[in-house]
């Protein structure tokens, strides 16, 4: 949490470039390869999570300030509940088949 006096927003530009790389990477994996469906989903899903983490750290500065830890715990726990809801629903609604 610094007050910038002058300079160049390095992290922002870096984050933006990495986002673009990850987005087009996912696009390439999804449409230009002939991997099995589940493999593709795992790869592009992982890329999405990396990109989300990138946004949270490089753009949103999730861990800055006196409540950085609270923010981080909060976001991670929210994400875990979301994962439980998604994975749990898919599993249960498949009737466990």
């Amino acid at each position: 949490m610094e007050k910038h006096k002058n300079g160049f927003p390095v992290t922002h530009v870096l984050g933006f470039i990495m986002s673009l790389v990850l987005t087009f990477g996912a696009l390439g994996v999804a449409l230009k390869t002939s991997l099995p469906f589940t493999t593709i989903i795992w790869i592009i899903g992982s890329l999405a999570i990396i990109q989300a983490a990138l946004q949270l750290y490089m753009f949103m500065h999730m861990n800055e300030g006196e409540d950085g830890t609270a923010n981080t715990i909060n976001v991670i726990s929210g994400f875990l509940v979301a994962v439980v809801a998604v994975a749990g629903s898919i599993w249960v609604m498949s009737f466990g088949m």
Binding site: V81, V84, G88, W91, V92, F95, G96, M97
Partner: peptide, 19 residues
């Protein structure tokens, strides 16, 4: 508390693993 919800509908007929 977030991991028990299916016990309200065991009789839905999900497989043995879920139940």
């Amino acid at each position: 508390s977030m991991l028990v919800w299916v016990h309200h509908f065991f009789t839905m007929g999900a497989g043995p693993a879920v139940n």
